Amino acid sequence: MIIIPAVDIKNGKCVQLVQGKPGTEQVVIDNPVEVALKWQDMGAKRLHVVDLDGALDSGANLEIIKEIVDKTDIPIEVGGGIRSIEYASQLLDMGVETVIIGTMAIKDPSVIEKLSQKYGSERVCISLDSKDNRVVTHGWQQSTDKTPLEYAQIFEDKGAGLILFTNVDVEGLLDGIDLSAAKNLIDNVSIPVIYSGGITSLDDLKTLKDINADYVVIGSALYRGLIDFKDTLEYED
């Protein structure tokens, strides 16, 4: 299992939102690039960068993302507002290791197939955000009629190399995790699953390791001091 610190960017700053809702910023740090370098210096093997402005269709932070890619030496996965194959390709071509695609792929699953054929499946991650066991899109604003597992099986067949599973019901609340949907996903797909949402303690990491999560994204708990990142490294493989 690999622990991945989250670097969420909004209005050019590193922030943590509650339930992804604008106006609920709990942490605001001026320089996301410095934050990314700090996590790398502490031993992070990968970074999870989310363009919240892109996800909410209110702009993009491409220049900051490029600076993070240029100044760090570890793989960077990027999600948020990737609404075209051209933009996904732009990110991959500038050195982003993995693009995380949600809304666009739900609308047109063939984009995953096209990108994985061009860049390799290991660089293409399907984002499945779950609320009430249904996948939600457009920055968690719209609900679909399929479960995370139903979509996961579709996108596995389309060539996705990774699945990012975010449990919206618990994300950002710092109230622990609900693993039923995640375990169902991990047990029934063959590609790696990145878990995100609600991680509050080291016990949560132990639980995720026990159900064979491949990667775990941590955001609020790190930024608010509930978990020391160095302590998470003992749960890595």
Score class of each variant (00 low, 15 high):
residue 141 Q to M: 15
residue 103 T to L: 07
residue 52 L to V: 14
residue 138 H to Y: 10
residue 53 D to C: 05
residue 64 I to N: 00
residue 86 E to L: 05
residue 138 H to D: 09
residue 104 M to P: 01
residue 116 S to F: 08
residue 161 G to A: 10
residue 112 I to K: 00
residue 119 Y to C: 08
residue 84 S to I: 04
residue 122 E to D: 13
residue 141 Q to R: 15
residue 72 T to K: 12
residue 134 R to C: 08
residue 112 I to T: 05
residue 104 M to T: 03
residue 164 L to H: 04
residue 51 D to S: 10
residue 61 N to G: 03
residue 170 V to A: 11
residue 135 V to F: 04
residue 101 I to Y: 04
residue 169 D to F: 12
residue 78 V to Y: 15
residue 114 K to G: 00
residue 64 I to S: 01
residue 116 S to P: 09
residue 167 N to Q: 13
residue 94 M to G: 00
residue 76 I to L: 08
residue 93 D to V: 07
residue 91 L to T: 05
residue 117 Q to L: 12
residue 134 R to P: 01
residue 136 V to P: 10
residue 139 G to A: 12
residue 106 I to D: 00
residue 117 Q to H: 09
residue 127 S to F: 05
residue 113 E to P: 00
residue 123 R to N: 14
residue 121 S to M: 06
residue 128 L to C: 11
residue 87 Y to E: 04
residue 157 D to S: 05
residue 119 Y to N: 11
residue 87 Y to C: 00
residue 167 N to L: 01
residue 156 E to H: 02
residue 64 I to R: 02
residue 96 V to G: 08
residue 72 T to M: 08
residue 51 D to T: 02
residue 56 L to M: 15
residue 71 K to G: 04
residue 71 K to E: 12
residue 135 V to T: 11
residue 58 S to I: 11
residue 60 A to T: 15
residue 135 V to N: 10
residue 97 E to P: 00
residue 146 K to F: 06
residue 130 S to D: 10
residue 116 S to W: 03
residue 99 V to N: 04
residue 90 Q to I: 08
residue 78 V to W: 13
residue 122 E to G: 00
residue 73 D to V: 01
residue 79 G to R: 07
residue 103 T to R: 08
residue 136 V to A: 09
residue 109 P to G: 03
residue 165 F to Q: 04
residue 146 K to T: 06
residue 114 K to I: 13
residue 71 K to M: 11
residue 155 F to L: 10
residue 57 D to H: 15
residue 113 E to H: 08
residue 84 S to A: 02
residue 59 G to I: 14
residue 144 T to D: 00
residue 170 V to E: 14
residue 100 I to N: 14
residue 126 I to W: 08
residue 92 L to T: 09
residue 101 I to L: 02
residue 129 D to S: 02
residue 94 M to I: 13
residue 85 I to W: 00
residue 77 E to R: 07
residue 106 I to Y: 04
residue 85 I to T: 13
residue 167 N to D: 15
residue 104 M to K: 15
residue 110 S to Q: 11
residue 58 S to F: 04
residue 90 Q to R: 14
residue 163 I to Y: 04
residue 148 P to W: 06
residue 108 D to G: 02
residue 63 E to Q: 09
residue 60 A to S: 15
residue 51 D to M: 08
residue 164 L to A: 06
residue 155 F to T: 09
residue 95 G to K: 01
residue 164 L to E: 06
residue 161 G to N: 03
residue 62 L to F: 15
residue 98 T to V: 15
residue 88 A to M: 08
residue 163 I to P: 03
residue 135 V to G: 02
residue 171 E to L: 04
residue 168 V to H: 07
residue 83 R to D: 02
residue 63 E to L: 01
residue 94 M to H: 01
residue 128 L to Q: 08
residue 63 E to P: 01
residue 132 D to G: 01
residue 99 V to M: 12
residue 99 V to C: 04
residue 124 V to A: 02
residue 96 V to N: 04
residue 87 Y to W: 05
residue 59 G to R: 10
residue 61 N to K: 10
residue 77 E to F: 07
residue 130 S to F: 10
residue 102 G to D: 01
residue 141 Q to S: 14
residue 107 K to D: 11
residue 142 Q to N: 10
residue 58 S to V: 12
residue 139 G to K: 06
residue 98 T to E: 13
residue 97 E to I: 00
residue 112 I to F: 10
